[in-house]
Computed example of a mutant assay.
Amino acid sequence: MRLVFAGTPEFARVALERLHQAAGFEIVLVLTQPDRPAGRGLKLQPSAVKQFALAEALPVAQPRGLRLDGRWADDAAAARDAIEAAQADAMVVAAYGLILPAWVLAAPRLGCLNIHASLLPRWRGAAPIHRAIEAGDAETGVTIMQMDEGLDTGGMLRSQALPIEPGDTTGSLHDKLAALGADLIVQALQDAGRDALRARPQPAEGVTYAHKIDKAEAQLDWSQPAEVIARRIRAFDPAPGAQARLSGEVFKLWRAQPLPGEAEAPPGTVVAADAGGIDIACGTGRLRVTELQRAGGRRLPAAQLLRGFAIAPGMRFSAGEAA
């Protein structure tokens, strides 16, 4: 089966590698986002997908847009020529980052199949992993979807649930879902090769949207319940990192858990600080922070950070500032 693959970050790279290794598939073209500046030197860096494709000598195209009548019409026309020349049976899409217009959706014989990191119709949109953790969902999963012109509205081809463990962060859950998605897309395409792939409509009820993470959301609101704050800390690990300000300095909080009982102190107040962690009063309950990071420093266990920065009961955390 001849495949075009469209994706950009590590989540997509895992699926591309799995398809490249699986018998019966040929990756005839890889689409990925243009190189972006990254790191302290802001040098242009290729995406994870591009790095893998180049290492495996797969043909790569990096259009800035795909609308034939848009700002990047020349890029779109070149991409159209490359896609048509590929004569693909299907296009696999995973966290690509560009909206696919109708001409792309119609180009492959079997259309475009998307690897989406949620159990649709819950968490359509840009940040399904973050939002599932933040909302306190007990499970999430992967849906292989037949793409249409809506926002994650296409028919479901395969799906599989995955429990969200109490200690899962967006980073750890991302890795589990990437591996699951890679397995499911192979299975879906194998079904398609046997003419055994059938789409079922998404339920009309239960639709939620996983809006893109705004850096301003990283600032913790201590008036919220401790459980809500703990989930947000896990949801924003590894990026953008939950932030709070103490003594004029912005900290990132990486690991925390709610504690039973109320703290007789205003929200944000440190009620204990020792080798076990830093206990902070919240709108409801208390939060024990066990790993955090000073600006410009490394992630450290609370006990180690306290040896170099004095935090004592009565001090008060406030909202941080978006980086």
Rank of each mutant, 00 (worst) to 15 (best):
V104I: 10
D183M: 12
R234L: 15
P201G: 01
D168G: 09
A272V: 10
D183F: 04
D74T: 10
G171R: 10
G248W: 01
T8F: 15
I164Q: 06
R18Q: 11
L19Q: 06
G297S: 14
A312S: 14
P34M: 08
R64M: 06
I164D: 04
M91I: 03
G97V: 08
A242Y: 06
R67I: 03
Q87V: 03
Q293F: 04
A242K: 11
V186E: 13
L68S: 12
Q243D: 03
D274F: 09
L151D: 01
T284V: 14
V186A: 14
A265T: 04
P108F: 07
M1Y: 01
L292M: 09
E84Y: 04
G283H: 11
E291Q: 13
P313V: 05
L105R: 06
S47I: 08
E56Q: 14
R13I: 09
L98W: 07
A244H: 01
R124K: 09
E291A: 12
I311Q: 03
S172P: 08
R316N: 00
A319V: 05
V28R: 11
H20C: 09
G39N: 10
L3M: 07
A204D: 11
G171E: 12
A126K: 03
V104L: 06
A179T: 07
P313N: 04
D74S: 14
A22N: 07
A77F: 05
R71K: 12
E134H: 02
L173H: 13
Q87Y: 02
W222D: 14
F317L: 04
L3K: 03
G296R: 12
I99P: 01
A312W: 02
S172L: 12
L19N: 08
R13G: 09
R80I: 01
R158L: 15
D74G: 12
G141P: 00
V142K: 02
Q45D: 12
H174A: 14
A76I: 05
R198M: 02
G285E: 15
A216Q: 11
A48T: 08
V30Y: 07
G261C: 14
M145L: 12
G314V: 00
A182I: 08
L305K: 01
G155H: 02
L110V: 00
E139T: 07
D168A: 14
P203W: 01
G41C: 06
A82F: 00
M156T: 00
T170P: 09
A94L: 04
L162F: 13
A275L: 15
G70Y: 02
A38L: 05
A235H: 14
T169P: 06
A273T: 10
L157N: 02
V271R: 01
L66R: 08
L157Q: 03
Q202W: 05
W254Q: 11
A106P: 00
A281Q: 10
G308C: 10
D148V: 06
I144W: 00
W254L: 15
G241R: 10
K176N: 08
A138Y: 02
A188K: 07
E17A: 15
I280P: 09
K50E: 12
A77Y: 02
A126F: 04
I280C: 13
E139A: 15
D214R: 13
L292P: 00
F317R: 00
A182C: 08
D74Y: 04
R13M: 15
A239G: 09
G308H: 13
L16V: 11
R13D: 12
D195K: 10
T143F: 06
V207F: 02
F309I: 12
D137Q: 00
A322R: 13
P121Y: 03
A272P: 01
G181D: 10
T8P: 12
